[in-house]
Design a protein around this nucleic acid. Sequence first.
DNA 1: CCCTTTCCGTTGTAAATACAACTGAATTGT
DNA 2: ACAATTCAGTTGTATTTACAACGGAAAGGG
Lengths: 219, 219
Amino acid sequence: MEKFIHVLKRTKLFAGVGEEDITAMLSCLGARLCTYKKGEYVLRQGERLDDILLLAEGSLHIQRDDYWGNRSILGHIEVGEIFGEAYVAPESGTLLNDVVALTDCSVFFFDVKRIITTCSSACRFHTMVVQNLFFAISERNRGLVQKLGYMSRRTTREKLIAYLSEEAKRQNSAYITIPFNRQQLADYLSVDRSAMSNELSKMRDDGLLEFEKNCFRLR
Amino acid sequence: MEKFIHVLKRTKLFAGVGEEDITAMLSCLGARLCTYKKGEYVLRQGERLDDILLLAEGSLHIQRDDYWGNRSILGHIEVGEIFGEAYVAPESGTLLNDVVALTDCSVFFFDVKRIITTCSSACRFHTMVVQNLFFAISERNRGLVQKLGYMSRRTTREKLIAYLSEEAKRQNSAYITIPFNRQQLADYLSVDRSAMSNELSKMRDDGLLEFEKNCFRLR
DNA sequence: CCCTTTCCGTTGTAAATACAACTGAATTGT
DNA sequence: ACAATTCAGTTGTATTTACAACGGAAAGGG
């Protein structure tokens, strides 16, 4: 676990907490570290979850496959991000999505009860972590609202524009790199891959954007 | 404000807190109460927000209209629910949606900073409220994931089935009442109203469901 | 280096949707 | 009670999408 202290230090969850204090808190928070190979499932739809997870290494997709094999990608998780936070409330039921390792991964599991039950004096930064977690969930919440914004568009072109322009704003540049290949982007926006590819070509012909692989340039 | 103490008592935010304690906490949390007439905007897209809001009376829609007048309804808020929780983190930017009063409303505003900065001894239930808020945001989060589940369906029929069957599960009955009229349901699911009306008729012909106004019966 | 697999753009066709227009029923306001 | 407005279902047409199939390029594995 010590290997990842420097990673934890830069996460939103541990913002403002020093390395020594993080080390102390790991046991206080009941942290466990698990590793997964590329392609393995970190969590499966239908399971129960009593932990908040934090990705220490690698990258993940939160996704769901329906009976007919249609995949829907809810989101992409990178190093330092938390996930599973939607299921911490009592009676929150079972997971609605799978979480799959895109590359080899290391994942911290934190016992939720031990986080939100502040242990008063023992670790002085506990309160700060609770606030950080609060903000992190709130932010994720806003991210979901934003994704709902893309999804509520009626046409593939509108969805693409909504997503790419939001991404450009976030990355603060007209050149953007996205964490999806074509199939994944299609699954993320819930559209057909070939239709999307087609639409991207039309948009390029219309002078709206340029692209190569997963790099886009908006105009 | 005292008028609504009995409402607050039954909210998730104040779960486990007695009436007298709630009264004491209202000032501790910097609570303000505002009223709105039917059709008025409680919040507007683009505004900034430093409070968490709780609906004490009436009902609300969280929605957004685009340049062409297409309305997208993100959610429906009923008495006792909180909203605005997605914008409490520092640097969360401006509101992505409007919040509109469907009926005359009363809304509590709570200063976020004063909630999450626990005032130790002063009010003994403060920690519990922080935990409740934590759970409430987490639950909202899960609700958004669920809505993304409906939205990721490709056809109007699939969206309707996903929404209605989830609602049936939630209301624990095959007879369900939804908080939308046809236009609102279409805006909620991001589909065309007339196409949806058409699809509903076909689904009735196929024996999947019956309906009258905003009451549905699934088979 | 070769073979296999994945990735991505293209095309054609069937299906689904958006949009506009119209109807009658229900609701609201005066 | 009447007029005005909202609401819901229906229809037709133009647009858009889903699906399947294909081929070439690129990437990955031995």
